[in-house]
Nucleic acid binder design. Sequence first.
DNA 1: TGCAAAATTGTAAGCGCTTACAGTTGGTTT
DNA 2: AAACCAACTGTAAGCGCTTACAATTTTGCA
Lengths: 342, 342
Amino acid sequence: MARARRTTIADVALLSGLSICTVSRALRNLSNVSDKAQAQVADAAQKLGYKASSAAARLAGGSTGAIAIVAPSATSWFFAQAVEAAEEVFADSGWDCVLISLRNKPSVRKKVFGDLDALAQRVDGVLLLNVDLDAEEISDLEASGLAVASVGMSRVPWDNVGIDDEHAAWTATNHLLELGHWELAVLTGHEMDGTSVLSSRDRLTGFRRALAESDLTVHPDLVVAAGSTIEGGRRAMTEILANRDMPTAVFAACDEAGFGALMALREHGRNAPKDVSLIGLDDHPMSWFMGLSTVAQPVADQGAFAANLLCERLADPSAHDRAARHMLGVKLIERKTTRHKR
Amino acid sequence: MARARRTTIADVALLSGLSICTVSRALRNLSNVSDKAQAQVADAAQKLGYKASSAAARLAGGSTGAIAIVAPSATSWFFAQAVEAAEEVFADSGWDCVLISLRNKPSVRKKVFGDLDALAQRVDGVLLLNVDLDAEEISDLEASGLAVASVGMSRVPWDNVGIDDEHAAWTATNHLLELGHWELAVLTGHEMDGTSVLSSRDRLTGFRRALAESDLTVHPDLVVAAGSTIEGGRRAMTEILANRDMPTAVFAACDEAGFGALMALREHGRNAPKDVSLIGLDDHPMSWFMGLSTVAQPVADQGAFAANLLCERLADPSAHDRAARHMLGVKLIERKTTRHKR
DNA sequence: TGCAAAATTGTAAGCGCTTACAGTTGGTTT
DNA sequence: AAACCAACTGTAAGCGCTTACAATTTTGCA
């Protein structure tokens, strides 16, 4: 099978009997092309199996045909789900997805967002998944000319969809409070190295607010970084167990950390809800089985929704009205790891 | 902050006092450039903060600066891990990763591999993760000019790393056999729709071989598709439980399906190992906690290893010797869901 | 029916980089 | 010292597509 010369727009022009320029316009569905020409071009392109060269298009000022999906990390359940959901939407609209994992490293984040021009050169848009950007990065991104949409970022000048993380955390914490607990610990989504996923900040805030509303204070030793992995949750819970003051209830900022906490408890001969009440946040597929009480959030929906929003922007950049902000609901799910304080 | 005209290779040429051509060569570290010129160019590029345009490079016949990571789906634990590990390797080498999830749909697979030219246009290489390709797709890919490396594909004309899935499954099954079980069921990695991930085929083969070696036959009703999700495992196990002939042991082709099986058992008032012995394959982080016996495989290692192989190929396309094949080891881990048949 | 305005279509100039091929330069060889 | 070479460097022709701007065809109306 010899490698044939690629079919270019010129071939289509020739076959359709129109000029390259008209073909180019027809191919991109620009308005000022007659229906007849449009049809001829479509027909010729079809016959020739013509595929545009994204590189050439890009170079000439067109679209790259790609968007970037940026996530703090790609291994946790939440991100894997959101990424897949978004990828599906993008793929169906013909966009390539460049995956960029920040790997929980501020250095990687700085590298990516510190050189937006480089990014803008390879993609037309960016989908941010719970990425924690500082004010400068936000305004740079806004000014970069890239279309942007995000999952889980409030107060941001572009389309955004998410849950109210603070409220979700508040709901979980409040559940604990209502069960009569007042010595609470929290396994935050922050990483050990200090990095934090955006949602984890809000969740911590929600936790704190719930306590404050009950005039409770949080002992610093009982706020421990777990990240969003099972292993992190396990380490964090182990740390809490080593504490002289055992809390009677624990809020894990994500279910995976909650699973880890369950492990740590078992390793120490304890369990939930007997020794401590434990509640997570996410509603991971395993949670039902583990009996983990939690606050459920629609994960794939968020990814898909945001991806759709971005596709729309990309399709019609002129629609430059103010950013849309969509909040999806969460729901408390009581299972077996929480119960009334005795 | 006005959007300045981009710095091109011409600017670098001007500043360095050399021709565009020499600059281009110096930038790409081609051999025939004097050290002096090389230094001047590096210096000028540095000063100007020059960033090459990948689109232009591509159009002119250079590299796209991107590779594609293709996975049957992106949500399962295995793929999320492998993808992240690979992404890290690629990102560190400066490659963009285009994520392509086949979403377990043959149609998507056909679309992607049926038009390799389109793919070749946007990426220089492809990393395949347990993708099940037919002979034609393999040879087309081989002929496409794309650099290829894969995880978990045997007998393929390019670099490959993986575990011996058949042997791993054989090991798991044999463990069951050694415990005295002879009525075995298997939850295969095949999807309900008939799609199969490459590894799941080999695992099924390994299961069958183990039985055959003990002169045992498999009842068709006891070979059920579970895919590689918790939910799939749950459905599959439920189906088995509805069977009149309950097996005394079950091999789940992946731990996640095993978790689902555990759920189904519980929903039916049964449990492992009392009612059936259950063994998985993967060693998912939850498996320890669940007490799930399994066969452990190094997941991130496989992704990173294969990514490195691909990077090497990409860096030196001339090294066209025969494909390397690396087999990583697996290990039986006995936990609590398997025990001797009573 | 005739002419300006509107709608289409075509011409041609790049976009920034790679690369075949044509110089240059300076050291060797005879 | 003339003739050669090897090692560099420069010239210029694209890669395939977008897009001002010009040219042409239609259409709308008086």
